[in-house]
Design a protein around this nucleic acid. Structure first.
Lengths: 197, 197
DNA sequence: TCAGGATGGTACCGATCAGTTCCATCTTGG
DNA sequence: CCAAGATGGAACTGATCGGTACCATCCTGA
């Protein structure tokens, strides 16, 4: 192989889909920007829809690995570690290429909730919520599942708000709400060296 | 005029754009579903983009009128009247045709932040925030502008969450967060017959 | 060295896109 | 009652869509 055409296709498609939208990007664009021939494209993917799904799967993995990295790198204590999500979002919003959440965007663009792309996007969010749930459980929060879903809702709200405003303010705003939420939440008594929010 | 072709065009376009997305709906669909001739379409609108903008303007007016109605019809006291937003969202999420927020969807579909459609969508959100701000001011909240933006962020988060989940739960979740937010917010002392959150 | 597989390029397909033009018809105001 | 304007229908444009077929070339493993 010349230099892994499939990989070049996926990375070009991922960037273009995110920056301009799935429907807005034609096969031609993906081919020219990746330098891959038309025939090679259809040797690797049966159709454009399959590329969309595979791009989303990749991005799901990358995104959650990024979140894990932000959690590990955070100097917050266990009780306020969930706020690392919003610390990370603030960075993302500042990026020049920020164009919202690829998964929300996909669900908006792909109206059909039964489409494979919609499912992958929905599954991504559930995985993120599961991660937050673990974080909150470790932080000693009683109603961790409900809290996880509230934090995820706040995160998504921040993302669409940042897309509209074009600034990072939404992350700070959402984090402030999350902080109030965690402060007022019930926690189970932790045995030793407990830290507070 | 046969029976106001322009009105039929706009209402058909509004429904189709919302249900299936702007890019996904071609002129042909709008024509066949509205029963308007092709030539008549271009007599009323220079291009499809102009229809998009006018549809959004209409929807902006309708949406905020609906919000005002929900506020007026609410039996909540001044301090918790802002929660009427989430009461209303719960109803919207339950509707069969619910497909998220037309303005968020437009900003997602229309990648270019300088496009007229994007601007109309962004302005809509600012007007909603201004309405919430007035509500919070009347409710006696000190940091009303910040609170208004936090509630709007919660509302948008609830909408995209509801789009993903397909249930009304997100409205309840967001309202719970909003309730905590209002309960912990500082309020100016009100003279007489003050009511609490 | 040579064969086989992967590759990039191009021509092509039918369908659909937004937009233009022309025309027959219908409605309505004067 | 009739003229003027608004209308719906259809044919057409050039561009682009996703997808197929064919071909010359290049890289690599045996």
């Amino acid at each position: 192989m010349a230099t892994n055409a499939k990989e070049r296709l996926l990375s070009a498609a991922e960037r273009l889909f995110y920056e301009e939208g799935i429907r807005a990007v034609g096969i031609e664009r993906i081919l020219s920007e990746s330098g891959v021939g038309r025939a090679s494209f259809y040797r690797h993917f049966p159709s454009k829809d399959d590329v969309v799904v595979e791009v989303l799967r990749r991005r799901d993995g990358m995104w959650r690995a990024w979140l894990d990295g932000r959690i590990e790198a955070s100097d917050r204590g266990p009780a306020e570690l969930p706020l690392a999500l919003f610390d990370g979002l603030a960075e993302r919003f500042a990026a020049a290429e920020f164009r919202g959440c690829a998964f929300i965007n996909t669900m908006v663009e792909t109206a059909d909730p039964e489409s494979p792309a919609h499912h992958v996007a929905a599954e991504h969010k559930e995985k993120v919520i599961a991660r937050l749930d673990r974080l909150l459980t470790d932080g000693g929060y009683r109603d961790h599942e409900n809290l996880a879903r509230q934090l995820a809702l706040l995160g998504d709200g921040a993302i669409v708000t940042a897309l509209r405003e074009g600034t990072t303010e939404a992350a700070v705003r959402a984090r402030a709400v999350a902080t109030v939420l965690l402060r007022t939440a019930e926690r189970v008594p932790v045995p030793a060296h407990a830290d507070t929010v």
